[in-house]
């Protein structure tokens, strides 16, 4: 078995798995009951999927100088995905997109209500 076939086989497996990760995200989007759980489905498979596909691309190109740019592309993804997920999740929590019956515990609610009460107590003089 020559190395060419091995590299081809590995990248083929990576490509199919990476495509499956997109499908996992879509299944999660369709099946999960509330916004927060859907967010898990939207972020995590996306990161792994891009990693697998970029690795497959690097293996197929067979030159060393593509690896740095692929690494940069993946690192940017790694930095931006949690930020956008956090922004969406935060907006979702504040606009009451949660279904409390699907949560077994909510330790943020008390804090939010405390802050709201404090804001009311401060009165209209503040703003």
């Amino acid at each position: 078995m020559n190395p060419e076939t091995v590299i081809d086989a590995v990248s083929a497996v990576f490509m199919v798995t990476g495509a499956l990760m997109s499908l996992a995200a879509a299944i999660g989007l369709l099946r999960f009951p509330d916004l927060m759980s859907r967010m898990h489905a939207a972020t995590k498979p996306q990161v792994l999927g891009l990693f697998l596909l970029l690795t497959a691309l690097g293996l197929q190109m067979r030159t060393w100088w593509v690896w740095p740019v692929l690494l940069v592309a993946w690192l940017f993804q790694l930095l931006t995905v949690p930020v956008s997920a956090h922004m969406v999740g935060r907006a979702g929590y504040r606009t009451k997109h949660l279904h409390p019956e699907l949560l077994s515990a909510d330790e943020l609610e008390a804090v939010v209500q405390q802050a709201a009460a404090k804001r009311r107590a401060d009165g209209d003089t503040g703003r």
Binding site: S22, A42, Q46
Partner: peptide, 28 residues
């Protein structure tokens, strides 16, 4: 809700990205 749609649109863009990546890998 609007946020659900945004999230799904984000995933759709990621799927487009995956398709571009596979095209690059197959056609080198």
């Amino acid at each position: 809700s609007l946020l659900d749609r945004v999230l799904a649109a984000d995933v759709l863009l990621a799927i487009f990205g995956a398709a571009l990546c596979i095209d690059m890998a197959v056609n080198r």
